[in-house]
């Protein structure tokens, strides 16, 4: 029985649902990433089943499941429910031991987390009740520019001209972007200005918690190379990027489930 011991972490966010299945040695045996859905419990279970299928395992083999993300309360199959702050911190320190700072840009919120030497959360800050500084902000901007999130990052890297954007409020920024478009500015330049505005907001959050030591960028925002570049140059820091940054929270949750299972 002990050899079959598996655990899972399920992270149901506003944009995506993720799951990671680990074996007792903490090796990733399966993972999944799905678009989120209004039925939080359903989409969480679906993500878990997909990760289990990848692991070639069944739900009965799970010793513990930890749920995280804003949909965590709905995950009735999870014995543990832990906030995404704790899970991202744990996930980042599993991937990059010694991590002292995590910046996470998710769909609905963004956060900066400062950690102590053993990966414990020392301080954190999150965006206000507002889409400013979140992945949703980027998605809205990409929509106005008639492009997608995948294209926005690489486009920003090709910027030739520094445009200024004064607002990270999604509503105000939207009208700024529209006026830049009507002035005939190029999409890469506008995309870069959007990233620069978002990075400034994130940098403020990082300074608020204090940054000192190795840093990790997690969440969907980390897939945007121009955003990462902007933040790095603002802070004078180099961020480590997980191979699959969106899974960081689910991975952290799975490791916390592993601790709970006593392995």
């Amino acid at each position: 029985m002990a050899e079959k011991l598996l655990v899972a972490g399920v992270d149901v966010g506003s944009a995506t649902a993720k799951a990671v299945v680990l074996d007792r040695d903490g090796r990733v045996r399966g993972s999944s990433l799905l678009p989120s859905a209004p039925n939080l419990s359903g989409v969480g279970r679906e993500a878990l089943n997909e990760a289990l299928a990848e692991a070639g395992a069944e739900a009965g083999e799970l010793a513990a499941v930890a749920g995280t993300g804003y949909g965590r309360a709905a995950l009735d199959f999870a014995a543990l429910r832990i906030t995404e702050i704790t899970c991202h911190a744990r996930g980042a320190s599993v991937l990059f031991p010694g991590t002292a700072l995590v910046v996470d840009v998710g769909g609905q919120d963004s956060k900066a987390i400062r950690m102590g030497p053993s990966g414990e959360v020392r301080d954190f800050t999150m965006n206000d009740k507002c889409a400013a500084g979140t992945g949703r902000f980027l998605a809205v901007m990409a929509g106005i520019l008639g492009t997608s999130l995948d294209v926005l990052g690489p486009a920003g890297l090709r910027a030739m001209k520094a445009l200024s954007m004064t607002s990270t409020c999604t509503v105000f920024a939207e009208s700024e972007v529209i006026s830049l478009i009507s002035q005939g500015e190029a999409v890469p330049d506008i995309a870069h200005a959007v990233h620069q505005a978002l990075a400034q907001r994130l940098a403020g959050m990082v300074r608020m918690v204090g940054a000192d030591g190795p840093a990790v960028f997690s969440g969907g925002g980390a897939l945007n190379p121009d955003l990462v570049d902007c933040l790095q140059s603002l802070l004078g820091l180099v961020f480590q990027i997980p191979e699959r940054p969106q899974l960081t929270g689910a991975l952290g949750a799975a490791h916390l489930a592993l601790r709970k299972a006593g392995a």
């Binding site: 832990i82 702050i85 959360v121 954190f124």
Partner: peptide, 17 residues
């Protein structure tokens, strides 16, 4: 000005820490 979910997450993360 209030988001109950966000506040809960912040406080719970604080308690966890």
């Amino acid at each position: 000005t209030w988001s109950e979910e966000q506040a809960k997450t912040r406080l719970t993360a604080f308690f966890e820490s």
